Amino acid sequence: MTTAFYPGSFDPLTNGHLDVLIQALNVAERVVVGIGINPGKTPMFSFDERADLIRQSLAEVLPKRRDALDVVAFEGLVINAARAHAAKLLIRGLRDGTDLDYEMQMAGMNAQMAPDIQTVFLPSGVASRPITATLVRQIAAMGGDVRAFVPAAVLDALTKKLNR
């Protein structure tokens, strides 16, 4: 069984992340979404909340593939986390040329350290390209409408969190 590792902060999950996750499930039988934990940052959503939102969002669009998804926390090098989950593919989403430049550097370094793990670049859909989790958080915090940028479960969670 081919396993892919899709790392990120997913704080929160955006439609762009979900688009890349769906594509990853087209190239791998199993996808492990790795939520990076950085002790120096305070996320908007806890690991458990983010994991739940990822599972809920995938179940809405691909209910038959929800068993092909695992969500885990990781610290340290992505390649070590990918290896720990027996992944042979490392999934990286691309929005534009700026992402490509950065991701190519990372792919080169990862290939040197882990030649057994293949980086796969997946482009986000046209509608998802301008979306970043940082912008979603900022727009939502200022009362803006982010429904075009996030899955329904994430919109609901953002609304609840910011209306406290």
Rank of each mutant, 00 (worst) to 15 (best):
A4M: 08
G8L: 01
S9I: 02
F10H: 04
F10C: 07
F10R: 04
P12G: 05
L13N: 06
L13K: 08
G16H: 05
L18F: 09
D19H: 08
I22C: 15
Q23L: 09
Q23Y: 05
A24N: 08
A28R: 00
A28M: 03
E29R: 11
E29W: 03
E29C: 02
G34Q: 03
I37M: 13
P39I: 07
G40A: 14
G40P: 00
T42F: 01
P43V: 01
P43R: 00
M44A: 13
F45Q: 02
F45L: 14
D48F: 10
E49I: 07
R50Q: 08
R50P: 04
R50K: 14
R50H: 08
D52N: 13
L53R: 07
L58Q: 06
L62E: 13
P63I: 05
K64V: 12
R65C: 07
D67C: 00
D67N: 14
V71Q: 08
V72G: 05
A73G: 11
F74T: 07
F74Q: 02
F74W: 06
E75F: 03
E75Y: 05
E75M: 12
L77V: 07
L77M: 15
L77N: 04
V78Q: 02
N80P: 00
A81I: 11
A82K: 02
A86S: 14
A87D: 03
K88D: 09
L90A: 06
L94R: 03
D96T: 09
D96P: 02
G97Q: 08
T98L: 11
D99K: 05
L100T: 12
L100P: 01
L100I: 14
Y102Q: 08
Q105A: 13
M106Q: 11
A107R: 07
N110T: 09
M113P: 00
Q118H: 11
Q118P: 00
S124D: 05
S124M: 14
S124E: 13
A127P: 00
S128A: 15
R129D: 03
P130G: 10
P130D: 04
T134M: 02
Q138N: 13
I139L: 15
A140L: 00
M142F: 15
G143N: 06
G144R: 11
A148R: 12
A148M: 09
F149D: 00
V150P: 01
P151Q: 03
A152S: 12
A152G: 09
A153E: 05
L155F: 14
D156K: 15
T159R: 13
